[in-house]
Nucleic acid binder design. Structure first.
Length: 599
DNA sequence: CTAGGGTTAG
């Protein structure tokens, strides 16, 4: 693999007169970062991983970016392309940017990935000598379009050509590129290039960098970056604050987000609807509906009108607490304010019906949407599919899947995972694996949800050794390391009464410094109870607390059942007292943990 | 930069 990279670097040097190591770094880092389909084969069949990555490199590097040479267009196509670009230049000259925008998008979409060299060649040969002022607009829009379609390599190719031609890219194009590269350190190279080129940054540039730091879990750095930018003209923007607040909310630290909100006010910035919506969302997820509603009032008082997003967030908040009545009230309020429900509103309502088991009502909403001329989204379909699968109505699910594809909506990894999970849960592992293969063929990369579903299915079938093989492949390939997978595997052993293997897995995960969850302990407790080792089970209650976790309703009921069965009434009563004393609450999944702040 | 979909335990 390294050899190929060197070879590639050499080619770059020849082609670009030694200039852009940037491309090289991006390629190598994208490769390491994206790890596309190797996890699939690593998991399904024993496979030589190095060979696989080598193959990826070939398609990635030689097929797309280095791409032997610009491909030659057949004459008719060449004429068409030239006329498209002629039109582009005219539109640019007339400043009809909307039309230009859609035309270039169309071209990029037609040409697809790896097309930048040929397109650039075409532009150079046919338009460059003309010295039109509109030239730069067309080039810039082209780079922008590639970036928006996530064809980063192509975008970089165009940018490099532009640099050769002394054409300066716009900050929008750079921002889009920064956004696409925000997961990697290359973001900073692009940022340096922006500075070198003298392109003035705008208010979004910094917020994208901050967003990148946040997504790389470098929250501390993101905050420092915000502080450093105080001095700069374009540094401190509402968008930057919003990004930081989003991150803290996602980690469950709504209070911290609130203090950033205050800081924003102190800096003389005016929170926009995003700022309010982010906080309201955070509060809703935390279950603090009252405070969320207060913020909505506050927002109105400060002249920021709640928008449809605000209402949808609030409706979802009530739905999360199982209070569909509250959700309805929010939606009525919304209708009174003159907003029409959108796809998201409908999806939340569908979700509500489905969760209460009213599939028919959910399906009726689909009809209503269609009759009102709404196109269902991939998410609305997923909600319905999930619901149908839970009732084992697979044939209807398949019909919906066809409907969705006929509308041009491509199922994604979540849609597939829902179906795969549904099938596995009902013992149809074979059909699930067929779907799994289908998704892999379509280059949709399975994630730990998908793997978890398959693993669960194999465990349920009782085929524990096969399940273990699958699990070991996932773990050793180092691609999927998730506590849930351990939990499922441990659950598989426990179901067969093999507590010893479950305990060994527990030891393995502690060695690997993977944080156990409450489910891990509940599974073990259940296992010990099943083997009549009540003392061990009881001792785990303390271990849970040592890990800073809170025993759940499941923990207590598992233990209480076991004590009942052996007729130990005292033990049971003690558990009941403890449970009442702790006022065990219905759960919210993500209890914030301190480490995210320092990662 | 904000909203809507998917795992494991009794």
């Amino acid at each position: 693999m390294l050899r190929k990279l060197h070879q590639y670097q050499y080619q770059c040097q020849c082609q670009w007169n030694n200039k852009p190591p940037l491309h090289f770094r991006i390629l190598s880092s994208l490769l390491l970062f994206s790890k596309p389909s190797s996890s699939v084969s690593a998991a399904m069949l024993p496979h030589d991983q190095d060979q696989d990555q080598d193959h990826q490199l070939r398609t990635f590097a030689f097929g797309r970016f280095v791409g032997p040479r610009p491909r030659l267009y057949p004459p008719a196509e060449l004429d068409r392309k030239i006329s498209q670009f002629l039109l582009s230049h005219v539109l640019a000259g007339e400043r009809s940017f909307n039309d230009l925008h859609s035309l270039i998008y169309q071209i990029v979409q037609q040409e697809g990935s790896g097309s930048a060299p040929s397109i650039c060649e075409l532009l150079l040969h046919n338009f460059h000598g003309w010295k039109w002022d509109s030239n730069i607009v067309v080039w810039d829009m082209l780079a922008f379009a590639y970036s928006r379609f996530q064809l980063v390599q192509d975008a970089l190719f165009v940018l490099a050509k532009m640099k050769d031609l002394n054409l300066r890219a716009s900050i929008q194009t750079y921002n889009s590129l920064l956004h696409n590269l925000r997961h990697t350190d290359i973001m900073w190279d692009v940022h340096n290039e922006i500075k070198d080129s003298g392109t003035p940054e705008n208010e979004y540039t910094n917020s994208i960098l901050i967003h990148g730091l946040c997504e790389q879990s470098r929250l501390q750095d993101a905050v420092s970056f915000l502080q450093i930018s105080k001095g700069k003209d374009t540094g401190l923007s509402v968008a930057s604050f919003n990004t930081i607040m989003t991150r803290f909310c996602k980690l469950g630290y709504v209070d911290v987000a609130k203090s950033f909100f205050c800081m924003m006010l102190k800096c003389g910035l005016h929170p926009d609807s995003y700022s309010y919506n982010i906080l309201i969302h955070g509060l809703c997820v935390a279950g603090s509906m009252e405070e969320a509603l207060e913020f909505k009032n506050d927002m109105e008082k400060h002249g920021v009108e709640p928008d449809i997003v605000t209402y949808n967030i609030l409706a979802k908040g009530f739905h999360l607490l199982g209070l569909m009545g509250g959700a309805w009230k929010v939606i009525q309020d919304m209708l009174l304010k003159g907003f029409n429900p959108d796809v998201v509103t409908y999806t939340i309502l569908m979700c509500g019906h489905c969760q209460m088991g009213n599939i028919e009502e959910g399906l009726k909403l689909r009809e209503e949407m269609l009759s009102r001329g709404f196109q269902l989204s991939i998410i609305s379909y997923s909600v319905l599919l999930s619901c149908l699968c839970k009732s084992a109505r697979f044939e209807e699910a398949l019909i919906l899947l066809y409907e969705m594809e006929a509308l041009g909506l491509k199922p994604d990894v979540i849609t597939y995972s829902i179906l795969i999970h549904g099938l596995c849960k009902k013992g149809e592992v074979h059909r699930a694996i067929l779907l799994y293969e289908e998704m892999c063929l379509r280059r949709i990369c399975p994630n730990y949800f998908t793997h978890g579903a398959i693993l669960f299915g194999i465990c349920e079938k009782g085929n524990i050794s096969e399940a273990r093989k699958y699990f070991d492949n996932l773990i050793t390939s180092d691609l999927v390391e998730d506590i849930v997978l351990y939990n499922i595997m441990m659950g598989g052993y426990v179901k067969l009464g093999n507590i010893a293997e479950a305990v060994q897995l527990y030891q393995k995960l502690t060695e690997k410094k993977i944080t156990p969850s409450i489910v891990t302990f509940n599974t073990l407790i259940h296992g010990f109870c099943k083997s009549n080792k009540l003392e061990e089970a009881w001792r785990l209650l303390d271990t849970i607390k040592l890990h800073g976790l809170v025993p759940s309703v499941v923990t207590y009921t598992t233990l209480m059942n076991a004590y009942c069965e052996v007729g130990n009434i005292d033990g049971m009563l003690e558990l009941l007292r403890e449970m009442e004393a702790k006022a065990v609450m219905p759960t919210h999944p993500n209890t914030p943990s301190g480490e995210a702040l320092h990662g």
